[in-house]
Simulated assay, not measured.
Amino acid sequence: MKAARTALLAMAIMASGATPLLAQGGHGTSMSGMDMKNMGPLQKGSMEAMEKMNKAMMQGMMDPDPDLAWMKGMAAHHQGAVDMSEAAIKHSKDETVVKEARKTKEENEKSLREIQAKIRKER
């Protein structure tokens, strides 16, 4: 459970907008400047998913159409939740966490399909 709490803390830090303040780079660190050497597989998987998600969200928000920009950003957000849930399903030893991760994955896959359909319709 401690690993799950650590991953949730890392996610909260990333979501807080503190990422630019942490950006340092360097050996053993992610783009956010967090030391990945001492993280377990769940934290590493979650951090990698968040970095991928953040990049895709920012790219999506660059669409000149504000409605499409929002939808593309949200699609990336939902994909990030799916990817983070997969990391938890794969690496968590706590069945409660795995159960919640499966539920979160299913909900976000559904939301992702819906928003992708709306994006295709808007184009």
Rank of each mutant, 00 (worst) to 15 (best):
Q116P: 00
G73Q: 00
K110E: 07
S30M: 07
G45W: 11
E114M: 00
E106C: 04
G80R: 01
H77P: 06
M31D: 11
G25L: 05
R5N: 13
T29Q: 11
D94P: 02
M50E: 15
I119H: 00
K103Y: 05
T96K: 14
L68D: 00
G26T: 04
T104W: 06
N54W: 06
E107G: 02
G17D: 09
L42W: 09
P20V: 06
W70N: 07
K37N: 13
A101F: 11
M34E: 13
S111H: 13
P64T: 10
G40R: 09
E48G: 07
G28Q: 02
L112E: 01
M57I: 00
Q43G: 13
D65I: 02
A75Y: 02
A101W: 08
M71W: 05
A23T: 08
L9S: 08
P66E: 06
M39R: 11
S92P: 13
M57C: 01
I89E: 13
K90Q: 14
K93A: 03
E100L: 13
T29M: 11
P66T: 05
H78K: 09
T104A: 13
A49P: 02
P20D: 04
K121Y: 07
S111R: 13
E107V: 08
S85Y: 12
S30R: 07
K118Y: 00
R102Y: 01
L42I: 12
A88D: 07
M36W: 10
N38M: 08
Q24F: 05
G28F: 04
A15S: 12
K105N: 02
D67G: 06
N38V: 12
I119L: 04
E107I: 04
V97I: 15
G40D: 15
A15N: 13
L21N: 06
V97N: 03
R113C: 01
N54Q: 15
L9T: 10
G25W: 01
P64A: 09
H91S: 11
A15H: 11
A49D: 06
V97F: 05
I13M: 11
G40T: 11
D94S: 02
K44C: 11
M1H: 15
P66F: 06
I119T: 03
G17R: 09
A15G: 11
